[in-house]
């Protein structure tokens, strides 16, 4: 008997998708209690966690894009260099590496062992540590986005700029970087959203000090640990709304990019 494979997929994917992806989010929202919302809103540590999350994620995203611009240069001009090959390989590492391990590595690299001269714990358990932990896990996303944008741009613009007198670095900064600004923005937003969600690396290296280095992810963890479940759920839904907003922004921007690419630029052709 011939099996309709399309029907098989259609009968398996929707229920599994709703059960394993949608249902946990719905369950979270269903569990929100007004008392939890009120307690969270009145908790100064919740607000400091929000501020820490947003500011540290923004700083990590800016660092990520700056580094990604450097990586893009190597992708364009020095693809055969050992440094590029190592950097390209390591961009995939945070996908496979447990983030607790990343946090421990950061703790050893920037903690009291090598950075004792900066204070009792080096950089550990400070907001700088939170930013570095977020950067470590989110930079590869910015790098991959910029790499794709540079690849899609092709080499003609750079070739022309060089025949007009630019050295590679000038051509990259004057022509390529402005031409991939949408890619840079996309990389920054992806990096920002990944940073917002980071928990393990942040807690290992930055700690979980309420009002000091605590971020939203670690705030939720601390509330659950303390048995303050209503507040944890309310804070979690706040995180979800924040995440959905950022993803919606990324998606709408990528839609704009696609439309711009399809029309050959940012507006339609009108002259001549």
């Amino acid at each position: 008997m011939k099996v309709d494979r399309g029907l098989l997929v259609e009968s398996l994917f929707p229920p599994l998708f709703f059960l394993l992806v949608v249902w946990p989010l719905v369950a979270l929202v269903l569990d929100v209690r007004p008392s939890g919302i009120i307690k969270a809103i009145g908790d100064p540590y919740f607000w400091s966690a929000v501020v820490n999350s947003v500011l540290c994620a923004a700083a990590a995203a800016l660092m990520g894009v700056a580094m990604a611009i450097g990586f893009g240069y190597y992708h364009l001009f020095k693809r055969r260099s050992p440094l590029y090959r190592v950097a390209d390989f390591l961009n995939d590492l945070p996908i496979a590496l447990p983030h607790t391990v990343a946090g421990l590595a950061l703790l050893l690299a920037f903690g009291r062992k090598y950075f004792w001269w900066l204070g009792e714990n080096g950089l550990a358990f400070t907001l700088v540590a939170v930013v570095l932990a977020m950067f470590f896990v989110s930079y590869p996303l910015a790098a991959r986005t910029v790499q794709a944008a540079v690849e899609e741009l092709g080499t003609d613009l750079v070739d022309v700029a060089r025949t007009l007198g630019d050295e590679p670095g000038e051509a990259y900064l004057r022509v390529v970087v402005p031409a991939i600004k949408e890619g840079l923005l996309g990389g920054a937003l992806l990096s920002f959203s990944r940073s917002l969600s980071e928990f393990a690396a942040v807690i290992m290296f930055g700690g979980n000090v309420p009002g000091k280095t605590q971020v939203l992810a670690s705030y939720v963890f601390a509330r659950v640990e303390a048995g303050d479940f209503d507040v944890a759920v309310a804070a979690s839904v706040f995180c979800m709304i924040l995440a959905v907003s950022v993803i919606a922004l990324v998606r709408s921007l990528s839609g704009e990019f696609t439309r711009a690419a399809e029309t050959g630029g940012d507006t339609v052709r009108v002259s001549g």
Partner: peptide, 20 residues
């Protein structure tokens, strides 16, 4: 010599104008 020191005018197939 690298392209920037050759003094050659080059127009590729796609005009490759700088979009910004």
């Amino acid at each position: 010599l690298p392209p920037e020191r050759r003094n050659v005018g080059y127009v590729p197939q796609d005009p490759s104008l700088f979009p910004h």
